[in-house]
Computed example of a mutant assay.
Amino acid sequence: MKSNQITVEISDNRKEKPAFSSLQFGKTFTDHMFVMDYTEDQGWHHPRIVPYQPITLDPAATIFHYGQTVFEGLKAYLSENEEVFLFRPEENIKRLNRSCERLCIPQVDEEIALEALQKLVDIDREWIPNVEGMALYIRPFIISTEPNLDVTPSKSYTFMIILSPVGAFYKEGINPVKIAVEQEYVRAVRGGTGNAKTAGNYAGAMLAQKQSGKSGYSQVLWLDGKENKYIEEVGSMNVFFKINGEVVTPELSGSILEGITRKSVIELLKHWNVPVSERKISIDDIYDAYKNGQLEEAFGTGTAAVISPIGELFWKSEKLIINDGKTGELAKKIYDALTGIQTGKVEDPFGWRVTVQ
């Protein structure tokens, strides 16, 4: 199957676009979507861009019962010259296929997926907000569709891409958020699906997030599922700490998602000759660094928020105020560099920015 086999059906009924200044994250969707099907006898076939519409599935479809699904998230950005840019989209498709492998889902052709993604964004480019700090969120995902209650991998799947103009993921924006260290629940364990981007990881995290929200915290800091001491992620983001001049992030252990923003931050820091390391780091290490006055900054990284500074950690009834609750100098510098590359405002020495033609 070649990429030029993607068919396009343009919608006759265009939606009214919302006021971009009042957008909420993930609540509004564009006029079109991409769809492609998989069956054992045909493989992946019939790639198409069609009007955005509901889908119909058999009640026995395996997605409803065994959660065999993977997804991705990236953004399209509008430059001051009205060019449309993507940020390292090939990394998202590679990670999608790694997640597919873990969930026993047939991998997609990366060339087809990237071509479909760019075509879809180009068709709905008018939906990209022209407001600073906003973008068009892109959600590729695959669901299992075979009607079968036997606990076995599905024999049919659907791959879709939908688009959503979005504002800030956290209402706080680049301002620091308050995070509670989770001591009861865990997000994932080594050998599980923590390093895959699959729905169950997020569903299982919602209770802890809900409880922390009631206490005034934006998210939770996840600890490992075995010893309940080593830091893994913050909410649905990777996490970094600046300790005595060195930036540290938890090493990929099989239970941590390999974030594209995480990877980019590490490469950016090395480019700047800022000391950065990936290693196991415990909550006790963070507490000791805080008490010794060496915990200088902390921040989460991810596609949705890019950089989310952490101004407070709540740990064992104690509030750890980081950098006086203010955005750190390094976090701001990283945010400006990444968003500058993404929107075309600054030079891209890494070749991360992709122009949608």
Rank of each mutant, 00 (worst) to 15 (best):
E232F: 03
M33K: 12
E16W: 09
V248D: 01
K178F: 11
S154T: 07
P349K: 09
E91T: 06
Y157N: 01
L313I: 13
T355F: 04
D12R: 15
G200V: 08
V346I: 15
N195L: 08
P309L: 11
M206K: 13
V239T: 02
G133R: 07
V356S: 08
W352D: 00
S144I: 10
M36Q: 13
V166D: 00
E82Y: 12
E182K: 07
I266A: 00
L149G: 03
N148R: 05
I128V: 09
V177Q: 04
S144K: 03
L23D: 08
D285N: 11
A113E: 04
K94Y: 13
V234N: 01
V151L: 09
Q294L: 15
I174N: 05
E258A: 15
L114M: 13
L268S: 05
Q209I: 14
T249R: 04
P176D: 13
L78C: 05
N273A: 10
R279L: 12
L221F: 04
K119H: 06
K94L: 13
E329S: 15
G167R: 02
V108T: 09
I256H: 00
D224F: 07
V356D: 05
R95F: 08
G340W: 10
V181C: 03
A208L: 09
S236K: 01
I334N: 02
